[in-house]
């Protein structure tokens, strides 16, 4: 199946994203204590952990929405240039590079964050036209195809406020896809949704995984982690506590703490 195909490809597929030794503190509180991750093209990595384990911060560091205190980030072979300031913190030294890398790593947020003053279609073409400077007509055609794909083509001229949460999140996923990203980062994409709307979003994400897209997914959806992802990473108190294929992790390969975590989560 798709799952085995992806696994056999892992050895040969080039690295889409490589992150090494990420540290991050907020004031005295150390949130991330050295986390590393390699994502090959086509990998779907689920990042699990209880709240406060640092999983969202980790994702935000990758997209440089937070600047890590220490560590290396390489996207498709290009290393993000960080320099150390006088007080010992890291800072991106090339803002243009940061913006370019961000446009290659599309982020899907827990709270959708669609731009409320633009229609759904305008939300989709905003970054391709203005950040990536691609021809508008071409972007519109692609955007329409993407809306078709996530099943909200009829909402193209609606404003975000007129859509349900599930529709908004599907639009946000389409917006991320419109940038033709090298990897997609999902930050708890279903946590803000009513239970009956979670399914429609997961279905879209499952389709994307089957297409072989590189995805990093911070989630609480155990079903998605077990059935869709190629790898599972369990964070605990800012460190990687256990890591492996879903078979290993949900079989007997995971750590004691992970087993406890899933027994508390799965009802």
């Amino acid at each position: 199946m798709a799952d085995t195909a992806r696994k056999s490809a892992r050895g040969v597929a080039p690295l889409a994203l490589s992150v090494k030794g990420i540290h991050k503190s907020f004031g005295q509180h150390q949130v991330l204590k050295g986390i590393s991750l390699d994502a090959h093209e086509g990998d779907v990595i689920s990042i699990l952990g209880s709240s406060g384990s640092g999983k969202s911060t980790f994702l935000r560091c990758i997209n440089l929405l937070e600047t890590p205190d220490d560590g290396d980030i390489t996207v498709a072979g290009e290393q993000v240039k960080l320099r150390r300031t006088g007080d010992g913190h890291l800072q991106p030294s090339d803002r243009k590079q940061v913006d370019r890398i961000r446009s290659e790593l599309a982020m899907v947020f827990q709270s959708f964050n669609l731009w409320s003053h633009r229609t759904i279609l305008e939300n989709l073409i905003e970054a391709p036209v203005h950040v990536q400077k691609r021809p508008r007509a071409e972007c519109i055609l692609e955007a329409e195809a993407l809306l078709e794909k996530v099943g909200i083509a009829d909402k193209r001229n609606h404003y975000p406020a007129h859509l349900s949460g599930g529709q908004q999140q599907r639009a946000a996923i389409a917006r991320a896809l419109a940038m033709k990203p090298k990897a997609m980062l999902f930050d708890e994409p279903t946590s803000a949704l009513d239970p009956e709307l979670v399914g429609e979003v997961l279905k879209v994400m499952r389709t994307l995984a089957e297409e072989g897209r590189t995805m990093l997914v911070v989630t609480h959806e155990m079903g998605f982690a077990r059935d869709v992802s190629s790898r599972v990473m369990f964070l605990h108190q800012g460190k990687v506590d256990a890591e492996g294929t879903p078979q290993e992790m949900f079989g007997d390969g995971g750590s004691e703490r992970f087993r406890q975590f899933i027994s508390n989560t799965i009802r």
């Binding site: 997209n63 929405l65 803002r95 243009k96 940061v98 913006d99 370019r100 890398i101 961000r102 446009s103 290659e104 790593l105 599309a106 982020m107 947020f109 709270s111 959708f112 964050n113 669609l114 731009w115 409320s116 905003e126 970054a127 203005h130 950040v131 940038m179």
Partner: peptide, 15 residues
């Protein structure tokens, strides 16, 4: 203005 929307703009690489 919702903070998240500004963050989304940062995340797509808008200067």
């Amino acid at each position: 203005v919702a903070r998240g929307e500004i963050e989304a703009a940062r995340s797509v690489g808008m200067p």
